[in-house]
Simulated assay, not measured.
Amino acid sequence: MTNFSQPLRFYGTSWCYTSRRARATLDELKIPYEYIDIDSDMEGRKFVEQVNNGNRSVPTIVFPDGSILVEPTVQQLKDKLGVV
Results as ranks from 00 to 15, higher is better:
S14T: 08
Y33C: 12
I31H: 04
Q50K: 14
D39I: 06
D39N: 14
P64H: 05
P59T: 01
R23C: 12
V51K: 07
L29M: 04
V48E: 03
V51T: 03
Q50D: 11
K46T: 14
R21M: 15
R23A: 15
T13N: 05
F47K: 06
G54R: 09
T13P: 01
N53A: 11
R45W: 01
N52I: 08
V62Q: 00
T13C: 04
P32E: 03
S40P: 00
R21P: 11
T60L: 06
D41T: 07
E43T: 01
F63R: 09
C16V: 04
G12I: 14
D41C: 08
S40V: 06
L29Y: 06
K46A: 15
E34I: 14
N53C: 13
F10Y: 07
N52F: 07
Y11A: 05
S57W: 02
S40I: 09
F47L: 12
P64G: 12
F47C: 03
N55Q: 06
E28D: 13
F47S: 03
T25S: 14
N55P: 06
R56M: 12
R21I: 15
Y17W: 11
I38L: 06
P59F: 00
V58N: 03
N52E: 02
I31S: 13
V58G: 00
E49H: 09
Y11D: 01
A24N: 11
E43G: 00
T60D: 01
R9G: 13
P32A: 08
R45N: 10
